[in-house]
Design a protein around this nucleic acid. Structure first.
Length: 480
RNA sequence: GGCGACGUGGCCGAGUGGUUAGGCAGAGGUCUGCAAAACCUUCUACACCGGUUCGAACCCGGUCGUCGCCUCCA
């Protein structure tokens, strides 16, 4: 089965055929860097991380662009959120931007989200945004009023085709005070005149100002991916107006299709309620990582299809963590047995089983990146592997390597939930040696039926977060 | 009010016109010095009401409910 993607634009699943064979150009709306990233960002970007990882796994040459918004996002009050934060922090706006951009990348790195190939900043692409705005004016899709430029929604009949919004309805439903200077309430700003107190400002043909909040994505996507590209992603909450405006600007300016496939991720709620600053129910990625390991967070996110909303709760992530532990336990056991395995070819029956699992996994992922179903395939693999390792054996190096390899490929490379090694810390090997030393001492105690000593070692290690498991073929340890 | 999505067992969550999702939790068992892990068995399903069909949880209509967007949001 070929890869199918649910295209929000057409509201149906379509076979994925990139513009250029073997190559995927992809754009995902990035964060506005005015504060720490929260668990909702994690859902969106882990989701697309897996999309990109999987496309690459299929052999596509992916160019992944994700912007950093550092200018232009306005609050209801008309105030730029970055400027407000700068004032609160008594810092320069670009200090705020720099600080939270770094934090964003640090959080994403910690979550195992691979970095985009290009992370263009809006503030570094003002000339491109101005040029595009000029182009839109020249083509009759935008007009200037008193130093600001607005997109003329009436000039683009297809406006609303992504979100299903109808311009006439917007006019009636709009609750914001209609700006006098706009021709139509649905018209949106491409360029805004800077009031004197607005210190994020650039020169333009219309005087000093700053870009509107949608034009950056159009301008930067065009710059790095061309007029038409394959996949545009983002959170569903941006479908209107942001994504809709991107399409209008780009297609009005270029006369070409903007993005061919639109993939939008469902939102995340916290204990059933949407996160918001005013309710105080936000959970930053840093706080989440302090409580759960990255793989648990990823497993939680991937246990629901990317386009569905999910609710974050302690119970839900705890269940995901335990599910992940099962998989990780089997991987660890495989690697442990590999340490002592005798050289030898892989067992053909096992290879056949692994091939079947892989085909299954691919089939699920080809169905619009169905990660939860793919995760279930890994769970079934895990049951088979556990049976194999616990009830048969010993197994040859070849067999164990094949198992480990499949976990690395599907669980590691594609889903990002199976680490290369138990602990990547600098002292990992030393720690392993020390624990093994204690395991050997304890083994002697056990041989002498000195259960008190044996239990003491196990209990004290447990308190240090190291769990021992006695098996017929020896004792293994796990960090918790 | 408008647009959209969704309602699956104790919980989280896939999927499908007739054939096991999977995980977590619960119960019983095997193994074990004990523990842990693992494996085996097992109990709760498809919001409600109509309709189409040999047969619907899956298709259609309606009702109720939840959520998202329409205003900054990933």
């Amino acid at each position: 089965m070929p890869l199918k993607i649910y295209n929000v634009l057409t509201r149906q699943k379509e076979e994925f055929k990139p513009l250029t064979e073997g190559k995927v150009n992809m754009y995902v709306c990035g964060p506005t860097v005015y504060d720490y990233s929260h668990i909702g960002h994690a859902k969106t970007y882990v989701g697309f991380d897996v999309v990109v990882r999987y496309l690459r796994h299929l052999g596509y040459d992916v160019l992944y662009v994700q912007n950093i918004t550092d200018v232009g996002h306005m609050l209801d009050t008309g105030e730029d959120r970055i400027l407000r934060k700068a004032r609160q922090m008594s810092a320069k706006p670009m200090q705020v931007v720099e600080t939270y951009t770094r934090e964003y990348f640090a959080d994403m790195d910690a979550l195992g989200v691979r970095r985009p190939d290009i992370s263009p900043r809006a503030s570094a692409h003002v000339p491109e945004q101005i040029a595009m705005t000029q182009d839109l004016i020249a083509k009759g899709h935008a007009y200037e009023v008193d130093g600001s430029v607005y997109f003329d929604v009436g000039s683009f009949p297809e406006y609303g085709k992504l979100s299903g919004r109808i311009v006439e309805d917007l006019e009636e439903g709009t609750r914001i005070a209609v700006r006098e200077e706009k021709k139509h309430p649905a018209d949106f700003a491409l360029w805004k005149k800077a009031e004197p107190e607005h210190i994020l400002r650039w020169d333009s043909p219309w005087g000093e100002g700053f870009p509107g909040w949608h034009i950056e994505c159009s301008a930067m996507a065009n710059k790095y991916l061309g007029q038409t590209f394959d996949i545009h992603g983002g959170g569903i909450d941006n479908i209107f107006p942001h994504n809709e405006c991107e399409i209008a600007q780009s297609e009005a300016a270029h006369g070409e299709t903007f993005a061919r496939y639109w993939m939008l991720t469902g939102s995340l709620t916290l204990e059933g309620i949407k996160m918001s600053k005013s309710l105080g129910n936000t959970l930053t990625i840093k706080d989440a990582l302090a409580r759960w390991r990255a793989e648990a967070i990823r497993t939680f996110i991937l246990s629901s299809h990317y386009n569905n909303p999910i609710d974050f709760s302690d119970e839900a992530i705890e269940a995901a963590f335990k599910g992940w532990q099962r998989i990780w336990g089997a991987v660890s056991l495989t690697r442990e047995q590999l340490r002592q395995a005798a050289p030898g070819e892989a067992n053909p029956a096992v290879l056949a089983m692994l091939d079947g699992v892989k085909a299954d996994f691919i089939e699920k992922m080809n169905d619009d990146f169905n990660a939860p179903a793919a995760l279930a395939v890994l769970q079934e693999l895990t049951r088979k592997v556990n049976t194999l390792l616990n009830e048969q054996g010993p197994h040859s190096q070849g067999t164990l390597q094949a198992i480990d390899q499949l976990y690395r490929e599907l669980g590691g490379d594609v889903l990002g939930i199976v680490p290369e090694q138990a602990d990547a810390g600098a002292n990992a090997e030393r720690e392993d040696g020390l624990v093994r030393l204690l395991i050997n001492l304890r083994a002697q105690a056990r041989a002498n039926r000195d259960w008190a000593t044996a239990d003491q070692i196990r209990n004290q290690l447990k308190e240090l977060g190291i769990a021992l498991e006695d098996r017929a073929d020896g004792t293994i340890w796990k960090a918790e």
